[in-house]
Amino acid sequence: MKWKAAFAALALGVVAVTAVPSSAEVAFNAPVATRQARETGLQTAIFAGGCFWGIEGIFSHTRGVRSAVSGYHGGTEAQARYRLVASGITDHAEAVRVVYDPSVVRYDQLLQILFSVGADPTLLNRQGPDRGTQYRTAIVPLNAEQRAVAQAYIRQMGRSGVWSDPIVVAIEEPRRFYEAEEYHQDFMHRNPDNPYIRRWDAPKLEALRTMFPQLYRRAFLTG
């Protein structure tokens, strides 16, 4: 059983987990984007960065974000179920759909947040203790502007010198996004004492607070 799946089962009272592999937390000085997104009106973005609990929690504390929903991007509707996705046999990625106001937070700033405190862009098909293609890190542009900004930002990250290993973030074509089960929504907010949240996701939220004080929102956005 994968670590993240084991902790999910623990939250539901199914199994007990006694140990967690150690690893450094995500906290990088991702560069400010040289190409800033030009968008107006509410926009939607999809990001995959390992376990969706932490990514959803980070964006739920980001100013300008109107909603952040955990779900599965890609794959089929029949297999868009946590037990199947967590097994690694489907083509889904755990992902978060974000609705945001670009007059408050731009798309390029969301990318900077993601790769500063949410996901290590040099890890292939894994983040933290989780392994498998379902935990891949990917950007899913939903329009031409997002795609251009994402492509430019990946190139910029590769030239920045912040990471010693190659950037392996994929840009994926938009496919259907399936909302995850209700118990996954707002998981960090609802389960602050869950061992996985304390070990892997709470440090990301603290990094957001300290690294992006102008974009950090103390109140948790639900839904």
Rank of each mutant, 00 (worst) to 15 (best):
V69F: 01
H73F: 11
D101C: 02
A219F: 06
Q156K: 02
P21A: 05
L205R: 15
G54F: 05
G57W: 07
V14D: 13
P141H: 07
P174L: 01
A148T: 06
M1I: 15
Y183V: 08
W53E: 09
G64H: 05
S60H: 05
R217Y: 06
V17N: 05
Q134E: 15
R199I: 07
E25T: 10
Y100R: 03
F7C: 10
N125I: 02
G64I: 08
A45F: 03
T62P: 10
Q36E: 13
R217Q: 15
T122W: 02
E172L: 15
A68V: 06
V140L: 10
Q214Y: 01
D101L: 01
A207M: 01
Q112G: 04
G132P: 09
L124V: 12
G41R: 04
V104W: 03
E172G: 02
L111G: 11
A148G: 04
H61I: 12
Y107A: 12
Q151G: 13
A152P: 10
T122A: 05
C51H: 06
W200P: 00
F220G: 04
A152H: 14
A180W: 07
P174M: 05
R63A: 13
E77V: 10
D120H: 10
V162L: 01
L124T: 07
G74C: 09
S22N: 13
F52K: 04
P141W: 00
S103I: 03
G54D: 09
A5L: 11
I197Q: 03
E172P: 00
A80P: 02
A24M: 09
N29H: 08
L221E: 08
R198M: 14
Y183D: 14
L221K: 09
H92A: 04
G158P: 07
K4T: 13
V99M: 10
A16I: 08
A19H: 15
A6D: 08
Q134H: 14
V15H: 05
P213I: 11
P31E: 03
A202C: 02
P166V: 03
S164W: 07
A16C: 12
N143A: 03
Q109V: 06
D120T: 05
V26Q: 11
P192W: 02
R35S: 02
T210N: 12
